[in-house]
């Protein structure tokens, strides 16, 4: 599994498509049959408590794409704080199992693992 991370609008989806994946191979905001999961942070935000349970399915995917959401000021609401925390912790675990971790910065893929 390749974990692709980066800020919002940093070029993650374009990067994954440059690897040969098309829209039909991407599940957006859910875990489907497709080999690519996109917007993992949106799935986590729906119910942060369920996030750890997604791990097993996600490590079996070819690519997992997630926004980096931990930077900035602590969010005002409990829901947003929980979502931010759960997204970070899930990504930490996914990064350990990932074959590689690619971070997009201004459209440039930086291989951090």
């Amino acid at each position: 599994m390749i974990l692709v991370i980066g800020g919002a609008a940093s070029g993650k989806l374009d990067y994954v498509k440059s690897l040969g994946y098309s829209d039909s191979s991407i599940s957006d905001g859910f875990i489907g049959e497709e080999p690519v999961v996109y917007n993992l942070q949106a799935l986590v935000a729906k119910d942060p408590e369920k996030a750890p349970g997604y791990y097993d399915e996600l490590v079996g995917k070819e690519i997992v794409i997630c926004d980096e959401v931990g930077s900035g000021i602590i969010p005002a609401t409990r829901e947003m704080r929980d979502a931010r925390e759960a997204t970070g912790r899930l990504c930490n675990r996914l990064a350990i199992s990932a074959d590689s971790v690619i971070r997009l910065v201004s459209g440039i893929p930086v291989k951090i693992k």
């Binding site: 980096e68 931990g70 930077s71 930490n92």
Partner: peptide, 11 residues
Amino acid sequence: TGGAACGKSTY
């Protein structure tokens, strides 16, 4: 440095 829940404490 890093954002929240990025593994700073563990590291």
